[in-house]
Amino acid sequence: MGVVHNVAEDGFEGLQHNFVTAPLEKLVNWSRARSSWPATFGLACCAIEMMATGGSHYDLARFGMEVFRASPRQADVMIVAGRVSQKMAPVLRQIYDQMMEPKWVISMGVCASSGGMFNNYAIVQGVDQIVPVDVYAPGCPPGPETLLHAITTLHTQIENGELLRRREETGAGANITVEQLDGQGQSQMVELGSRT
């Protein structure tokens, strides 16, 4: 035991297994999955169940998610809890755009996922028409158990996902670009969500 001052001299045995090696991507994903803060985006009935999930019995804090953030700038996961009306849709998109990358969306309940029983003039038939959705939670409203399952599913997705790139199939990524230096002294814009 003891502090290893010089790995080259003492060798790895000196550390006595007290270290973990991992790809940086895994490490970052692991930490992201365990502190993904949700944005408060309660809309309808599902919001009550979402709040119940945050209550003492179901205890969302077990998943590092008890910190519901009022400001979208501080949130990682947007739980769209309830039916999205035509009037609300632009507001929802704006809040999604205000969230920092990386960000994920859980569509909670059938109304958010597909319009549910309200297939009429007022309701957007599926929030995935406005924002890319990672996990759909079924139910009307989904019980706290269903929401917890959706959250653990999302955590698995985050842990297995790639670090910088968002999912290909949905073309997600909110059009954020990063500058990538290719070593030639001249920067090239790379759009997240695409391989080129």
Partner: peptide, 11 residues
């Protein structure tokens, strides 16, 4: 108001 208008009376 109206951000949760669901058209329930029409439905």
């Amino acid at each position: 108001v109206g951000y949760l208008h669901t058209g329930m009376e029409k439905t």
